[in-house]
Design a protein around this nucleic acid. Structure first.
Length: 112
DNA sequence: CAGGTGACTCTAC
DNA sequence: GGTAGAGCCACCT
């Protein structure tokens, strides 16, 4: 199923990330059916303009904010993350492990 | 077609 | 904990 474009798939996956949870670019890309396209996911998010898209819940594999510190997007992501109940310290997500564990438990091993 | 770029990831030191 | 190098894929000049 799913005959959408790669970008659309990525957006779809990001959109369904639960509140208070975070995901990595690689994870999102993989779940979108595009393994190894973490960079594409980043590109799509950078080009995205949908205000209803929780793009701020997507971080790097090490749990850090992908945007350059001090940039506008960085501050906005940080703020939104905290508003979601995610503990962010020095541009890094502290609950990344917990989020990942929850992710596997609620979403399953892989594949959609 | 070759070269540069990027909200990436992994391994090694 | 951090930095450095290589690999990676899609897109633009």
């Amino acid at each position: 199923m799913a005959d959408k474009s790669p970008a659309q798939r990525i957006i779809d996956v990001v959109r369904r990330i639960p509140r208070g949870q975070v995901a990595g670019y690689g994870e999102v890309a993989h779940r979108a059916g595009l393994p190894g396209r973490a960079r594409l996911a980043a590109k799509v998010l950078s080009e995205n303009t949908d205000p209803g898209l929780p793009w701020h819940r997507v971080v790097r594999s090490d749990g850090r904010i992908a945007l350059p510190e001090g940039s506008k997007g960085f501050r906005e992501q940080c703020q939104r993350l905290r508003a979601d109940g995610v503990n962010v310290i020095k541009g890094r997500v502290r609950d990344l492990k917990v989020a990942r564990t929850l992710d596997e438990q609620m979403w399953g091993p892989f594949e959609s």
